[in-house]
């Protein structure tokens, strides 16, 4: 069964212990909200879970194997959205999504994804002409058109308006109800049923 397990994760940065003894397990159908004050190490934790930062102490395993062993196999299951949108300004909206798809194994329709995030009709617009919120939406649309079980989202609601946040909460709900998993940090109160929410405070 797909499940993410974290045991005794610790991280030190600049001679300071950011966090230690982080342990949790995340099953399909659940959303993990990571909370903490500024500088608590939320982004660092997420980057470790995404395999972008090496794990110095502790184990992160997916399906029982550590993510360092899994390497490429883990990346077939995991999508990460960081502070940066990973949107190329000189490519059109659909070219950006198409490139993400070409790097992935299982994909779905670009137009459907754009419809879901409310970017209908922007397919051929150069991404540099989008507003900050629209660029964020484009980054979210990328999650929808590459099929990954686990989403790791670092402040996904930055520069989104209220209705877009509600829309995206709906998409998260839809993803986990189909057996997906989501790990998310956010400063917004998240509006999802408590039955699927787990909370971790750093």
């Amino acid at each position: 069964m797909n499940r993410l397990e974290v045991k005794n994760l610790a991280c030190e940065r600049g001679g300071r212990l950011l966090f230690s003894n982080i342990s949790f397990s995340l099953n399909p159908g659940a959303v993990l909200v990571i909370e903490g004050r500024n500088g608590a190490g939320k982004t660092t934790l997420l980057r470790m879970l995404a395999g972008l930062r090496s794990i110095e102490d502790g184990v992160v395993s997916f399906d029982g194997l550590s993510i360092e062993q899994l390497a490429d196999a883990y990346y077939q299951q995991m999508a990460y959205l960081g502070h940066l949108n990973a949107v190329k300004y000189d490519l059109t909206v659909s070219e950006n999504l198409k490139f993400a798809q070409q790097l992935s194994t299982v994909v779905s329709n670009i137009d459907d994804a754009l419809h879901k995030v409310g970017l209908d009709g922007y397919q051929d617009t150069l991404s540099r002409h989008l507003s900050a919120g629209q660029k964020r939406k484009l980054a979210l649309a990328r999650l929808l058109c590459i099929h990954k079980r686990l989403w790791i989202l670092d402040e996904p609601f930055t520069s989104l308006d209220k209705s877009s946040i509600a829309m995206f909460e709906g998409l998260i709900h839809e993803h986990v109800s189909q057996g997906g998993m989501v790990i998310i940090t956010t400063h917004h109160p998240i509006n999802l049923p408590d039955s699927i929410l787990l909370r971790l405070t750093l």
Partner: peptide, 18 residues
């Protein structure tokens, strides 16, 4: 440089390809 600055490098490194 540009891939590093806009985050595309992360996207590329996290693709299921060598």
């Amino acid at each position: 440089r540009s891939d590093y600055e806009d985050g595309c490098l992360e996207l590329i490194l996290m693709s299921p390809h060598p």
